[in-house]
Design a protein around this nucleic acid. Structure first.
Lengths: 332, 332
DNA sequence: TGCATGAATGTAACCGGTTACATTTTGCTG
DNA sequence: CAGCAAAATGTAACCGGTTACATTCATGCA
């Protein structure tokens, strides 16, 4: 491996001069600079970044904990993270945690052990809980956010968004509205449920909890939950799904029962993934700026890392938009 | 930061003994071992992995170049990569290249500069082309594979798979079959086109190149291409799309024309993404073991890195399966 | 010419582990 | 108990950059 000493020898200068030529060319005399650059070229020298990182105690890597990369929405968020990280000179260490907290804590260790300078968590779990008394490593929590997050957060006003969807369904005349939720202990699910209830309450309706089915954000779980709802004696006339993946599973199940969307049952989703506008019928949903979530999370994280920041309590609320398409219509 | 010297001091031993206690506990006497471990505990010591990596000249990171993480198929492949890498003690540096070769070469530099030990490329481009005479860094090419790849590869027999799809359509009586392709210069597209032609030739048909429309593997491009095909004087009775994303876009466009799938036009896709079985109609497609692509790529790459391997010419062909669903039917 | 000043360059310590080699301790045998 | 091998532990070089500080060199002015 050609190292800085070889180059120095080749150019007839000291290692310091080589280092300076590459990092601060302006303080090296033009003649020397040319000689060094020629030697660099000739030797095909590339600085060993492990050494640079080690010396500077900065890896310029960020750990990203993602529950499932297979989820289209997260894929977009990661795209945004990667884009902004690259722009700021950072790399992304991707960790598909599948929601396993042991794995998340293990991955979080990559920051403690200096494999990365900071961490972005896309789930409501603090992987540094067990850090006993130590200073918290730089972290940002995005998408599904802890209630009392010990770090900056980036999230949607899920309550308001869910309320908007529900009001849309109410305006179409629906009164019995089913809900296909996410996992029980998720703050995201809880907030969307609250927004749902807000809208019902404002309309003077009492929610029927028997119409709330849990899912896990995958199409099969939406399919299953819709099956549950349809088998009721008095099935709902509309179903609000907490994400588009489950909505697509639900629509499938509805059609399998010989019913039509939206003529017999309306379906609304959440996220506005790419397929939402291409499936049949196209899906009424909440559009989120997924890539922007990622970019913003990186921005906040680098603020902490670069110490351009004193407050760990910056909280960004991202905008949403109700996108009405074909899957919702007037109650039959 | 607590380092190994602090721990050594605390335990009343030398740094070497601390290092040995953590790496090879069996060659340290039990009494000393306990004392050191207690000191480690007390100090909350975590070895600085940057130092370890620097010393051992191994980062235990792998760079992954992915054209678009937003593509459901690649998301699954990356999931497999991440899983196997984790199991083997490696991290994944994810790079969303968007097909930009400059960016790919830049990212590839992370291996030359020792930020990572090897690279997995999911596109048919060799980012080390410009490496003048140097030994090639460890690399594996998966999914879309170079014809004369200078490294191990993992791919599908795209030609055979495309032939299987086409034969299925021919068996249903279709004679005018449209094709929605990927980008022109892609070996993957070329192979699928060859398989398509193989099937036609075997059936004694001459392909009509005017029915081949280029796309870019996204739903909108499939939508657009289907529009092109439908506007022909004599439109095809079936459309073979080179991936499911484009197939969903195409189906959407067909329905917008007032036609039904498969009654008026059959549509087939490729990849069997999660939505393929949940959209309406569900999609006839080629199932690929996406996660297995990723796992296999990591396996091959680590074989090179660990030098457990002499041959850079291991080439894996992964199995496919034709999954017939609702989107294809007998010609009208 | 001599000296002050600043620019250019060199020297070597340092980051935090690992490990070859040296030294000390332990345990066993005769 | 001497003597020796093996086990345990210590010392310090090393990985490849960066940079504080020291040194050399060039320039301008009196």
């Amino acid at each position: 491996m050609t190292n800085i000493r070889k180059v120095a020898e080749l150019a007839g200068v000291s290692v310091a001069t080589v280092s300076r030529t590459l990092k601060t060319p302006d303080i090296v005399s033009p003649g020397t600079r040319d000689r060094v650059l020629a030697a660099v070229e000739q030797a095909g020298y590339r600085p060993n970044l492990m050494a640079v990182q080690f010396r500077s105690q900065r890896t310029r890597n960020l750990v990203v904990l993602v529950p499932t990369i297979a989820n289209t929405f997260f894929a977009r968020v990661i795209g945004g993270i990667q884009e902004m990280a690259q722009r700021r000179g950072y790399g992304i260490l991707l960790c598909n945690t599948l929601g396993d907290e042991r794995a998340e804590r293990a991955y979080a260790g990559m920051v403690s052990t200096r494999q990365a300078d900071g961490l972005i968590q896309l789930r409501a779990y603090d992987p540094f809980t067990a850090s006993n008394g130590k200073t918290r490593p730089p972290m940002v929590n995005a998408c599904e956010v802890l209630d009392a997050a010990p770090c900056p957060t980036v999230k949607l006003d899920n309550r308001a968004a869910a309320r908007a969807v529900t009001e849309h369904l109410l305006a179409l005349g629906h009164r019995r509205i089913g809900m296909i939720k996410g996992p029980r202990n998720s703050p995201l699910t809880r907030d969307r449920l609250l927004g749902f209830q807000d809208a019902l309450a404002a309309a003077g309706l009492t929610p029927d909890e028997s119409l709330w089915c849990p899912g896990d954000f995958t199409p099969p779980s939406g399919h299953r939950a819709a099956g549950d709802l349809l088998s009721r004696a008095d099935p709902p006339t509309a179903i609000f799904c907490e994400n588009d993946e489950m909505a697509m599973g639900a629509m499938r199940r509805i059609r399998e029962s010989g019913l039509r969307v939206p003529d017999d049952i309306s379906v609304a989703g959440f996220d506005d993934i790419a397929f939402a506008s291409f499936c049949d019928p196209s899906l009424t949903t909440i559009a989120q700026p997924a890539e922007e979530f990622g970019r913003e999370a990186v921005s906040l994280l680098l603020d902490i890392i670069d110490d351009r920041d004193d407050a760990a309590d910056k909280h960004r609320i991202m905008p949403f938009e109700l996108v009405v398409r074909e899957s919702t219509g007037p109650v039959n």
